[in-house]
């Protein structure tokens, strides 16, 4: 019976090989070869240069800052939602998820409307005779876009850990002499760490690899590593170099994931996002 049903997985295994494994092998192959054939490490060596180092540094920096903002702004929000009574709580979670149902590009585009030179904010400033600000096409706009798009990924996992937390643990800590601050420091925060780590992973990963947000809100002059890949494949047509960067990015992220996974709650089923 069991051995029989195993064959049901075979069609999908074939699919996985064709559409997941082979493409990645192709990318790896391209990254290790010259444009006109022949094995080389040249594409990787090329990446180790100040120009591309700067791109990598900027990507990591912006993703890191966005993640910190998401955590600092999102944690209190998760606590507020988890502390609300049950009907209010469900409504708040729904309101938090709702914008995510709107197309990612439309959400990003909306910020262009707000931040633009003749945008809503500058018009409001102008109404009060205040000078217009350069809000769009800079690092700040890119970070704002990242925080806006990814903050639900931080709030929801932290919220779900906090909501599931055994309230008697908090009572027990108070019973043993801990005041509100100590309770947070020694009980609530350490116990919410699995949610925090999931949140950090789910914000940092898309932030470091995005190319849409820097393109639309950064105006293209702020190139991040995602833009670099996109450029190689769609303008420059240097697939070999593009493949090498993709492989580097993938290895970075999978290693980071593996490290993060070690700190996650071993009791949780792996892969649970909320």
């Amino acid at each position: 019976m069991r051995t029989n049903q195993k064959i049901l997985a075979y069609p999908y295994i074939v699919w996985l090989i064709i559409f997941i494994v082979v493409p990645l092998i192709l990318v790896l192959y391209f990254s290790l070869s010259f444009r006109d054939g022949g094995i080389t490490l040249e594409n990787y060596r090329r990446f180790i240069s100040p120009v591309y180092g700067k791109v990598l540094y900027r990507s990591l920096k912006l993703a890191f800052i966005s993640t910190v903002f998401c955590l600092v702004l999102g944690y209190p929000m998760a606590m507020i939602i988890a502390g609300a009574d049950i009907t209010k709580r469900n409504l708040m979670v729904l309101l938090f998820v709702l914008p995510m149902w709107m197309n990612f590009l439309l959400r990003t585009y909306a910020w262009m409307t707000l931040l633009g030179k003749n945008g809503v904010i500058n018009n409001i400033l102008g109404y009060f005779n205040l000078p217009a600000l350069n809000l769009l096409y800079n690092n700040g706009a890119v970070i704002l876009g990242m925080v806006y798009n990814f903050i639900p990924f931080m709030v929801l996992p932290i919220y779900s850990v906090l909501a599931k937390m055994d309230k008697t643990l908090i009572e027990a800590a108070k019973d043993l002499g801990a005041n509100e601050i100590t309770v947070f420091r020694k009980i609530i925060f350490p116990l919410s760490l699995p949610g925090v780590i999931t949140g950090i992973t789910m914000v940092f990963m898309p932030a470091v690899s995005t190319f849409v947000i820097p393109k639309l809100l950064g105006g293209g002059q702020f190139m991040l590593i995602g833009n670099l890949v996109e450029q190689q494949f769609t303008y420059v047509y240097d697939w070999n170099f593009g493949s090498a960067i993709s492989i580097i990015m993938m290895v970075f992220i999978l290693i980071a994931m593996a490290i993060m996974a070690k700190y996650e709650d071993p009791m949780e089923e792996s892969g649970g996002l909320w």
Binding site: D166, T168, L169, E171, A172, L191
Partner: peptide
Amino acid sequence: QINTVFQKYALFPH
């Protein structure tokens, strides 16, 4: 100056 033993113990799992 009162301490409690909770119903399901409430030991800190971490």
